[in-house]
Design a protein around this nucleic acid. Structure first.
Lengths: 201, 201, 201, 201
DNA sequence: ACCAACGGGACTGCCCGTTATT
DNA sequence: AATAACGGGCAGTCCCGTTGGT
């Protein structure tokens, strides 16, 4: 039988649901985002939602996976500083979901297992890129590459945690400079602090 | 009439409850730590727990406040690097609770309000200490003090998020070096990477 | 989209719930009628009941309001004696709910407030009717109309209390005669006690 | 062994408890009067209360029995009108408890059974007294004595229900007149309505 | 005798997922 | 495909009575 609605329309619905769910999960957290709130945020009803995603858990997983991939490509495309800058420009809902992923990883074993099974393509790509940068002398070499990667992850996660929680950040550029200096090669003279946005204001 | 049990015994009970609750909250998250699980973790019954804390929320708040204060003094006493090192030595349960505090700050307005009302003594002390360090030339001066504080907070939060979530960290000392270099004055020659634990291994 | 079930079916459900609730409240009292018992009495699940009434309180209020209105119209249509007679013919469950209303009025301030806000249409109608009766010489005139109304209310409430509690009443007609004589004009010769049901038996 | 405290002191404690309990039961109803509220109302602690009465139920029963006896003697001593008058002068707490007795009789089978087992001395006395009154021509004779007793009970219960619930009553004397006329012999000329409080105002 | 701490049962309301219906 | 009604499990918390202790 032919599908009742086009594949395109179906994808649109999925996007609608994912987008609404993102807001709900970001605002209330996973447990706080009751199905009733998801309905409201999506403008759809239980039946519609559960028709596309088998359960709340499933829906969250799909959303998390999609958003995580997006962050990965963002990192790959814009680099460390670019990603940091992007995080602050982002709609906080994206970060909220990311934060909730951490939460689920911590407390939900099944989720953790599933998450680990994702194909680590982006991780590979990132590692590769770091290696290139280091070979090109753009990263300090007195520390294992792995440690540099860890440092960057930590800064990113810290930024996400703080920003998602609503802490205000005044001097984004200054912050990025500090983070980049930490992993820059020693000889590289520090960029003159031309003007941080704050001082310019 | 005199109190039934000594003040000391009462305090011991509170500690018992808080300690059990910490494990439960850390393992399952706030929502996942049902009262039944709290009972089990404390080895006490509902009656006992609710005799000391009016509600689950109250219990969590008391725990969070206490642990946050502890982290604050740890920072003040051992410095940035010391705190980072301590975080990795800690029982992850301490970090789990800290993580959950973020979660509640994000999603629970009442909690956020209450949390903001805490007296910011430790924050003051920290700011003061940073200023002294900068004046003494131990911190780079080309960036506002505020930004340095922000950077440190972000690294700390990132470490907590990652460690609480169970991500393994191999090269703690290397990481700390990176973080400290980021805020060290420019001329300070980087410490020779004497031996990172990893390289030693 | 059109509603899933017809408005009529919805009303039928409401009646089903109210009817079951009436029995449960009457038999066990407000507090004794646990939601589990309400479920059983209605033959429906929690989900169904709470879908129509937001809380046990709300359900009780809706029921009370409806039944009170019914008693009001009964009074207006059949007169004092008619109402008294009807009370003894009623299913005691109706009276039980009425009794519980008193209980809630006594102990629950919110309920009392809400109850007071009901539009007092029937009260007005009753007052009007009493005035007509008195003008027509069918009520004694040596006592304020208000007092007569009070007397009638008291007798009605007393009958409800006793009957709802299960005290047996043998001579209903005799009782009604006494109550009506109390408010009849002086000259009116007392009706010959033709036959009380008891004596006839 | 000799009693630790005198019998007199014991009785005083019992009175203290009963008196506090009366207020609590009257204000909140049986279920609403939690043991914590009873403690507060008595100024004593759980241990003390449960030392004198085995359970909340037992305490209530003792209180109810005592108060019911008091109403019985009041009726016997002051007559129908006197009792009615007294009800309006009474502290409403006494009436509240009486009201709650009805509630328990309705819903609690064990209570009902126990209550029925009380020795019906006062009932006998009342019946006797009514007979004397009727023989003396002070009560109408065209209605069975039983019915007159029922009528009086109903009026009393109605007054209690209304007054305990807090409905205001303006014209107590007028009300009493109506009630007494209902059971007075036919020929007895109605007392001139000297002045009802209301008309005097 | 009196008290506070404690145990554990049970109640209401919420919440997720399923089902009847259009 | 989409909706609203519905089922049933469960969480927090209140509440009664008991127990250890003074």
């Amino acid at each position: 039988v032919s599908p009742r609605i086009s594949e395109q329309a179906k994808q649109a619905r999925r996007d609608q649901i994912l987008s609404g769910a993102r807001n709900a999960f970001a605002e209330h957290g996973y447990e706080g985002a009751t199905v009733a709130k998801l309905e409201q945020a999506c403008g759809l009803s239980r039946g519609a939602i559960f028709n596309y995603y088998a359960s709340k858990d499933e829906l969250f997983y799909a959303l998390a996976q999609r958003d995580a991939a997006r962050f990965g490509t963002l990192w790959a495309e814009t680099g460390f500083g670019g990603l940091l800058r992007a995080l602050y420009d982002e709609d906080p809902a994206w970060l909220g979901v990311y934060f909730e992923v951490f939460r689920k990883l911590r407390t939900d074993d099944d989720f953790r297992r599933r998450w680990a099974e994702r194909s680590p393509d982006t991780d590979r790509a990132l590692e590769e890129r770091l290696r290139e940068l280091q070979d090109a002398g753009a990263l300090r070499a007195d520390v294992p590459l792995e440690t540099i990667g860890l440092f960057m992850s930590i800064v990113i996660d810290g930024v996400i945690a703080r920003h998602a929680t609503g802490f205000p950040t005044s001097d984004v550029e200054g912050l990025i400079r500090l983070a980049e200096d930490a992993i820059a090669p020693e000889r590289a003279p520090r960029r003159t602090p031309a003007r941080t946005p704050r001082e310019a204001a």
